[in-house]
Simulated assay, not measured.
Amino acid sequence: MRQIIFDTETTGLDPAQGHRIVEIGCVEIVNRTVTGRNMHVYLNPDRDSDPEALAVHGLTTEFLSDKPRFEEIADELMEFMRDAEIIIHNAAFDTKFVNAEMARLGKPAMVEYCGKITDSLMEARQRRPGKRNSLDALCDFYGISNAHRTLHGALLDAQLLGEVWLAMTRGQDALLIEVEDDGTGAQAGAEVMGRFDASGLPVIVAAAEELAEHQEYLLVLDKSVGGACVWRTYDPLPPAGEAAPAG
Rank of each mutant, 00 (worst) to 15 (best):
S145D: 15
D83C: 04
R127Y: 07
N133A: 07
K96H: 08
D119E: 11
L77N: 10
I87C: 10
L77G: 10
R104E: 09
E163N: 13
E85M: 13
Q172W: 09
G130T: 11
A154T: 04
D119S: 05
D136N: 11
L135V: 13
P108C: 09
A103T: 12
N133T: 15
D83S: 05
N133D: 02
N146D: 13
E101R: 02
L161E: 00
E112Y: 08
E112T: 03
D173Q: 13
A167Y: 15
M102G: 05
T118H: 07
Q159L: 09
E79P: 02
L138T: 05
V111N: 07
E76W: 08
P129T: 14
E85K: 13
E101I: 15
K107Y: 11
C114N: 05
A92R: 09
V98P: 06
L105Q: 13
L77F: 15
R128G: 01
M110K: 01
A109P: 02
G115K: 10
V164E: 00
A124R: 10
R128Q: 09
K116R: 15
T95S: 11
A167K: 15
A84C: 09
A124G: 08
E112I: 00
W165T: 00
M110S: 07
G162A: 15
G106N: 11
E123H: 06
D173L: 07
L161Y: 01
K107S: 06
M168W: 02
K116D: 12
V164A: 02
I87L: 12
D140E: 09
D140T: 04
L160H: 08
M110W: 10
R127P: 07
A154P: 00
P129A: 07
N99A: 10
G130D: 03
D94L: 12
H148V: 12
C114D: 02
T150L: 04
I86T: 13
